[in-house]
């Protein structure tokens, strides 16, 4: 009896070896749990603090990532496509005669066109990303650019991947297997646009060139006339005159040779 009381006082003061003696004291459940409180408390605090730390850290990282400037400006074509997809034509259609004719839904052909435009923009962005990747990697290795730029780039890359998948899925929904060719078509459209731009650029020089040549020819002619009249300064005009003589001969020489060229080309095709 004395032993047990002393044991219980001991128990209240310290928990080191009380389990064993409580076992003997025939009050096992209560003391078993009370003795576990400390490790449990320890674990809760540990896990709790770790959890709070990690969630705070993650939240901060997420916030930082969301404040990263996007690589590309907003995707207009995608916005248009989705706006059209979600458009309720009964409200949005603006027909002159009001309620007589209203679209039940946005026609598929319009959506297809919008999807092609979207794919076209995607192609241009992918080309841009591919071009930037090599240079950016090198710069990053040299430490010339910060890690943030690289993070932005990676995010843009991932976004484009998702975007391409999305477009392929949408295309397959319109027509079976269109997803396989829509980007090919978009690529050709892109190439053709570049081609036409280039041609227009060169052709736009034509007027200036023509004007220049008119002026130049007039100059040459007046020089020639002066020379014929005066014959006083033959040294200055001599080389020019000579070249125009050359020209006359060359023009004659060109004719038959190039006619052959045309023949040759005809034979080839």
């Amino acid at each position: 009896m004395d032993n047990t009381t002393s044991n219980s006082t001991f128990n209240s003061s310290s928990s080191s070896n009380s389990t064993f003696s409580d076992w003997q004291a025939s009050r096992p459940p209560k003391s078993f749990w009370t003795n576990l409180t400390l490790p449990i408390l320890y674990l809760t605090i540990l896990i709790g603090s770790l959890y709070t730390f990690s969630s705070l850290y993650r939240a901060r990282k997420l916030k930082k990532a969301s404040t990263l400037a996007p690589w590309f400006p907003p995707h207009r074509q995608r916005d248009i496509y989705l706006s059209l997809l979600h458009l309720d034509p009964a409200e949005a259609s603006e027909s002159g005669d009001g309620s007589e004719k209203k679209l039940k839904q946005v026609p598929d052909s319009v959506l297809k066109a919008a999807l092609i435009r979207r794919a076209l923009e995607d192609i241009q962005r992918i080309v841009q990303l591919r071009g930037a990747k090599q240079a950016l990697q090198t710069l990053l290795q040299r430490g010339s650019v910060g890690d943030e730029l690289w993070q932005r780039f990676l995010r843009a890359e991932k976004e484009m991947e998702e975007e391409v998948k999305d477009v392929v899925n949408e295309a397959n929904a319109f027509a079976p297997n269109w997803g396989q060719t829509i980007f090919q078509s978009a690529n050709e459209i892109n190439q053709n646009n570049l081609l036409k731009q280039r041609v227009a650029e060169i052709q736009s020089q034509l007027e200036a060139e023509k004007a220049w040549w008119e002026g130049r020819r007039a100059g040459i002619q007046s020089d020639f006339m002066k020379e014929l009249e005066g014959d006083s300064k033959p040294i200055g005009t001599a080389p020019r005159k000579k070249s125009s003589d050359d020209d006359a001969v060359l023009v004659d020489a060109d004719g038959p040779g190039e006619a052959q060229g045309v023949k040759k080309r005809k034979g080839k095709k």
Binding site: D79, S83, L84, L87, A92, S93, E94, L103, V106, V110
Partner: peptide, 14 residues
């Protein structure tokens, strides 16, 4: 997520 744009469609000419 997308930005809705002010688009309208003509019923007859589409």
């Amino acid at each position: 997520t997308y930005t809705p744009l002010p688009i309208t469609i003509d019923a007859t000419t589409k």
